[in-house]
């Protein structure tokens, strides 16, 4: 990408980036500030710790200490397990499904119709499926277990993965695969050795997306879990009590909850860029 920089564009780009960063970060900044204020100060406008107000670890003591701390830690653990495992399974099924719909032609139904059917699974409002899911899981004796939530989240995320994969695979130049097929690779090998690595940036992106969606999903978890399998969103929702909303608690919990996906995104972001330089796309 060697291009002479057009300075006007870069000035605009920088201003835009700066504003957008401010816009994006401010709520988090405020959340972080609120999470280190004492409950009595949660509504004050002070924003410089030590200078304008005395930081307090009260919120963190509540959120991480004693009985509630047990719940928070368990919630974090559950969230990590559910999101990573369900996204991995989704990725596996989604890559296969997406590839087949991008590359093969099916005779009985049109590819498009299959794809739309798959997607329609995501269109249904969760309310309509929450109780049937509950009944299924009860029959399978899986209520309040992590597999139940993982299974539900796969239904929720798989359509998304398949759809994105279709596009990613379609973008790939077919010639490379054809060459491989001529060289005597089987279809499976061509998929595994050629297409999959080429689509890696896309795959990573899909993984992050599924991870985040699963991480943030609320209604299924609330329906299918009792005590051992609550995930972070449900725990955060618990901060809205009949007493009202404790902003210091919400802030602390939300900060905790966003950390793992952000770390994941930060790590894979580098990977995304390396995916670009793999070379085959550029030839």
């Amino acid at each position: 990408m060697k291009r002479k920089s057009i300075s006007g564009f870069f000035v605009f780009a920088w201003i835009f980036l700066a504003l957008f960063t401010l816009w994006t970060l401010f709520p988090f900044f405020w959340g972080a500030i609120t999470a280190i204020k004492s409950p009595g100060e949660q509504y004050s406008t002070a924003f410089l710790p030590y200078l304008q107000f005395k930081p307090s670890s009260y919120a963190w003591q509540v959120v991480l200490g004693q009985a509630e701390g047990e719940r928070t830690k368990q919630g974090l653990r559950n969230s990590i397990l559910v999101s990573s495992v369900s996204s991995l399974l989704v990725l596996f099924m989604g890559a296969l499904g997406g590839y087949s719909l991008a590359r093969f032609r099916f005779s009985r139904w049109k590819n498009r119709d299959i794809a739309v059917w798959i997607l329609s699974n995501r269109m249904f409002p969760p309310i309509a499926v929450a109780i049937p899911f509950f009944l299924i899981m009860r029959t399978l004796r899986l209520l309040d277990t992590l597999p139940a939530i993982i299974m539900a989240h796969i239904v929720y995320n798989l359509p998304l993965a398949v759809w994105l994969m279709i596009d990613f695979f379609r973008e790939l130049p077919e010639e490379v695969e054809e060459a491989a097929l001529i060289d005597g690779c089987s279809t499976v090998q061509a998929f595994w050795r050629i297409s999959l690595p080429l689509a890696l940036p896309g795959i990573v992106a899909v993984y992050i997306l599924c991870f985040v969606f699963s991480w943030n999903e609320f209604l299924f978890v609330v329906t299918l879990s009792y005590r051992k399998t609550m995930t972070m969103p449900v725990i955060i929702a618990g901060a809205l009590t009949v007493r009202g909303l404790d902003f210091w608690k919400v802030s602390a919990l939300s900060l905790l909850a966003i950390t793992p996906p952000v770390i994941l995104a930060a790590l894979t972001s580098r990977y995304l860029i390396r995916g670009l330089t793999l070379g085959a796309v550029k030839e």
């Binding site: 719940r71 109780i131 509950f134 009944l135 009860r138 209520l143 309040d144 609330v222 329906t223 009792y226 005590r227 449900v234 929702a237 618990g238 809205l240 009590t241 009949v242």
Partner: peptide, 25 residues
């Protein structure tokens, strides 16, 4: 004693779902 602590907003549906499916949790 096991406690199932749910958000207030989902207490009603949690409870009624348990009732109408006869789960008895």
């Amino acid at each position: 004693v096991e406690m199932v602590v749910v958000p207030y907003a989902s207490l009603y549906d949690k409870m009624i779902t348990d009732f109408i499916t006869g789960t008895g949790a």
